[in-house]
Structure formats: structure tokens, C-alpha cells
Design a protein around this nucleic acid. Sequence first.
DNA 1: TCCAAAACTATAATCGCTATGGATTCAGAT
DNA 2: ATCTGAATCCATAGCGATTATAGTTTTGGA
Lengths: 191, 191
Amino acid sequence: MPTTGRRERKKAQTRRALSEAALRLFSEHGYDGVTVAQIADEADVSIATLFAHVPDGKEALIFDDGAERRVWLVAAVRDRPSGQSVLEALRRCMAARGPFTDDLSPELRHKRDLIVRTPALREYSRKLWIAGEGALAEAIASESGRDPSDMTVRALARYVLEIPELAGAEPDPLAALNAIFDLLEAGWGGG
Amino acid sequence: MPTTGRRERKKAQTRRALSEAALRLFSEHGYDGVTVAQIADEADVSIATLFAHVPDGKEALIFDDGAERRVWLVAAVRDRPSGQSVLEALRRCMAARGPFTDDLSPELRHKRDLIVRTPALREYSRKLWIAGEGALAEAIASESGRDPSDMTVRALARYVLEIPELAGAEPDPLAALNAIFDLLEAGWGGG
DNA sequence: TCCAAAACTATAATCGCTATGGATTCAGAT
DNA sequence: ATCTGAATCCATAGCGATTATAGTTTTGGA
């Protein structure tokens, strides 16, 4: 039974305290206006403990490990309705999640804005998405009868995973997302 | 007369001494095995001077400011032979330069390998490419009668500029580059 | 020749992050 | 209930990149 010890509960609790302290302080003073020492203080742990919980460093404090995103994407591709194209499945999946839907709690909206307007956080968010490139490429390859090392497949996966960073800062992110998927589907053309 | 003082000559000389010292030491001990203090010593300047010459930090030491790249790309798009498509012009431009051509001096080849195998340097190289996104988007928009803020144009510019990082590490970079340009031109399709 | 800008310097400080070594707490076996 | 090993936590010290400060030297031009 993996998830039922007091130990794991406390661990998750500390991790959440760190996340919340970081988000609160970042929102109040800006990302660069907060030191990891302040965050550790606010969460009432030592700096060493902070880094034990968040080995990827300061930027990772307000993110999870990105495993969920990877699972969604691969599942969206593999379990899509029959007859639906891979790109269509990915388009719907991304449109529903991430920075593209508008029915978010005010806190999440606020967090998204913080990420979009803070370069270090934007870059780390991109890194998390791109960490799923291999998995997504495998899923796409498997569904389209190509080799996962096929550069076309890898490039498509990469380009899809870059969409959040590319479209996230637009005035109408959803319209931007659709424009980019249209481009990936039909290409730029010979003009 | 912009470029003819002893001052500017000495400045360029110091900058090159830093570049060469950094490249030599990185090659010998690896990027993480070298401190900026060692590089400053090797170039016989103080640490403060090093950062005065290279405000972007350690990774920027072995790169120029990327202005050249931007000029090539924009020129390639704007001055292309009549009848040639924008993407074809970009394909040829990138294939001829950067990590894609094979007639390089051994030093440049060695430098390229160092960059490809060092994450921090790879990321900074990408950053330099992407810094040209705005300029490239404007050129593409101008040549295709679209608006420079059109998301399709911006996405295309971004995707083209990501090709070096995406294809640079492949066994056959040139083939990879062509595969990606084919994808951008024709799209993935509805399959 | 003289002056202001530019380049350089040493020094000290900040900040993110890691290493060490020891104390505490927990899970599971006896 | 107790023992034991692992996990967690902590204080401390330290490293490396980067910035700030303040003073010195060099250079270009009036």
C-alpha cells in the first residue's frame, strides 16, 4: 500500500507548504524579489529541506513534476475516438487544459499570469512540457506506423509541446492555439 | 569613423581573449569543470571585466551576440531569388550555415560538438536563435502579405529557429533539417 | 595639455545551491 | 513493546556566478 503512511502525508504536506509559500511571496514581491531563504522561512523549514523537496531549484517550487501532463497527452493520443486524427486529439486535449481554458479558479488564473509574465517561470514551464517529448513521440509513432526516432515525429511532438509557451501570452490564447494547430496540420505551403 | 580607435581594437582583443580562453578551458575540462575566475585569469583580466564584456554570463563567453544570424535570415528571406518560396530560402540559408554544413575547420567542428553536448551551451545557443524571432516574423509577414503579429507567422518563425537545436544533435543533421522543413511546408496532414 | 568618458581593478556582498555530519522520526520486523 | 535501518530534517559551512561600489588607469578629442 504505497500512499498511506504518516511519513508520506507529512512529506506531501511540507511540499504543499513550500508551494503555497512560494506562490504567495512571488505574487506579492515578484519572482526576483524573493529569496529561497524567505520561502523556506515562510514554510517553516530549513533551506536544505527546501532543496531536498525541490531538487530542480527555485523555479520548480510552484510546479508539480509534470508527470500528469505527460499522461494526459499520451492518453489523448492513444485513446482518441476512432476516426479522429492524432493532431485533432492533441488539439482538444491542450485546449481543455493548461492556460487555454477560461473556467479556472481565480487563484489558478493568477498563477498562470505570474508564470506568463516571469521569464524564469515561463522557461521552466516549457522545460516541463518538453520533458514529455519522448513519450509523446512514441505515442504518435505508434499510432501512425512510423519509427519513434523519425525526425518528423520528434519535430511534431516538440512543436506541439511548444504551443503553450508560444500561445500562452497571446490576448486570445485559444485562437492562437487553433491557428498553430492549423499550421501544423496543413503546413505553410509553397508560397 | 566607428571602428578605428585603439580603444575599440583593444576592446575587441580582450573580448576575443576571453572567448578563446573559455573555449580552450571548456574543451579541456568541460563546461562545469571551469570557473569564470579561471577564464578571467587565463585571459589576464579581472572577473569584473569579464562580466563587463559578457553581460549575459558564463554561457555567452564563446558566442557572439547573434546579430549576424539575424541579418542572414532576414536577408535570405527578403533577397531570395524571385519565384523561390520563403521556406525554401530559409531552408537553404540554414543548411549552408550553422551546424549543418560539413566543410568547417576542425576548431569550429570541435566547438559545435562542445555546444551540442553541453546543455547550458545548447540552451543559450537556442536563446540566441530565438532572439531573432521578431525580425524573422516581420520579414516573413512582409513577404507574404500578412500581419507580423499573425500567430501563424510568429509560430513559423519560431519553429524554423528551433531547427538547429532539434536537428543539431542528429547523426545526419542535414537530413533532419530537410525532414523538418518538409513537415513545415506540407504539414502533418489529417492522418 | 587637459578633461571627460570608457575600461579596468580589487573588494565585498548577495544569492542559489551543495556537502557534511549529526539529530529526530517513522515503518516494519522481531 | 522494542529494535533497527531508512528517511527526514536541521545547522553550518562552503562554492561559484553575478552584481555593486568605489577608486585607478587609459584613451579620444577639444
